Amino acid sequence: MKPSTSSATGNTQQSPTENDNRKPPPSPLKDNITSIETRLMDYIGQKFDALSVNLADFKSSVNSQLETLSNTVATFEQRIRQLEFKTTELSKQNEENPEITSLNNTISSLHEQLNAQDQFSLRNELEISGITEAENENLCHIIATTAQKIGVKISEDDIDMINRVGTRHDTNNQPSTTQSRPIVVRFIRNSKRNEMINARRVRRNLSTTDIDLKGPQNTIYFNERLTKTNRKLFRDARMRAKEFGYRYCWVKNGQIFIRKEGQKYAKIIRNERDLNELQSGQSFK
């Protein structure tokens, strides 16, 4: 028998070099990914181009609006300067115009006369502060007791009106000096009011303990009732008096007085002009 050969059996094996040179078949998945990446990059590029255009338009719009605003501001500033100039000129003309000056003086005089009339209507009224406010208080009894302590005899016939004035504070039914409103007493006669004030000056240490009121001991003060204008004027006068060396500042019969230590006569403060004369050193009666 003849020996069989490997070629005859059909089992001939290829060399490793031939197997390595063979290319793998194309992958559909890879082609799809590449296509998606390409389309995505094109889309992103288009969006960036559109955004660049929008930013350029926005920048141009903002610059245009800023320019318009700047021009508007410049116009307003020019108008303001013109108005300030006109106002200054008008003020100068008013100061130089005797008719306007006379009119202003007349208006000021009328205000002072009205204030004087209002003050005269308060000539019988006494303002008492420092008395603790309480619910269901008997003001007539409190005032009668206070008057008795300073040696003044009063009756209900002497009193025309009595009440607390000012904004009411919620004290939660607890006595409070800081929240107590002042008491205003309108007497029938001015002489009785003045008698109360003079007696209080003698009894300097009058307090709520002296009239048997509950709560902390508080000093009781008597003052003439003043108009709103005169209250402010009196407050300013006290400040100016302290500033310019006037030791005394007080109210009597609705008029405000100041006096330096050693001076024989007091000065009357009727208005703001009198206060300004204190500062300038001018003398007035």
Rank of each mutant, 00 (worst) to 15 (best):
T178P: 09
V185D: 02
I150M: 06
K214Y: 08
N194C: 15
Q179F: 10
K153A: 12
T227L: 05
N190F: 10
F187G: 02
N190L: 08
R164L: 07
H169D: 11
N223Y: 00
T227R: 04
K232P: 07
R238S: 07
T171P: 07
T171V: 15
R181I: 08
T171E: 13
N190E: 11
G215S: 04
N218I: 10
D212K: 15
N172M: 13
R204Y: 06
F187A: 02
G166Y: 03
G151M: 05
A199R: 01
N223S: 05
D160T: 12
R204K: 12
R189D: 12
L233G: 01
R203P: 06
I188S: 08
I183D: 00
R186D: 07
I162M: 05
Y221G: 03
I220Y: 00
N223P: 01
D158I: 03
L213W: 02
S155E: 07
N230M: 10
R201N: 10
R186S: 09
I220Q: 01
I211W: 02
I197V: 13
K153V: 11
R238P: 05
N194M: 15
L233D: 01
N230Y: 06
F222D: 00
R225P: 01
K232F: 08
L206I: 10
T229K: 14
H169R: 13
N218S: 09
D236Q: 12
R201Q: 12
R193V: 02
R203Y: 12
M161K: 15
N198Q: 15
Q179M: 14
R200N: 07
F187Y: 07
L213S: 00
R200D: 00
L226Y: 01
R189P: 06
R193Y: 06
Q217L: 12
N230Q: 15
S207M: 10
T229S: 14
D158Q: 06
V165F: 07
Q217H: 08
R235K: 14
R201H: 11
R164I: 04
D158K: 05
L233N: 02
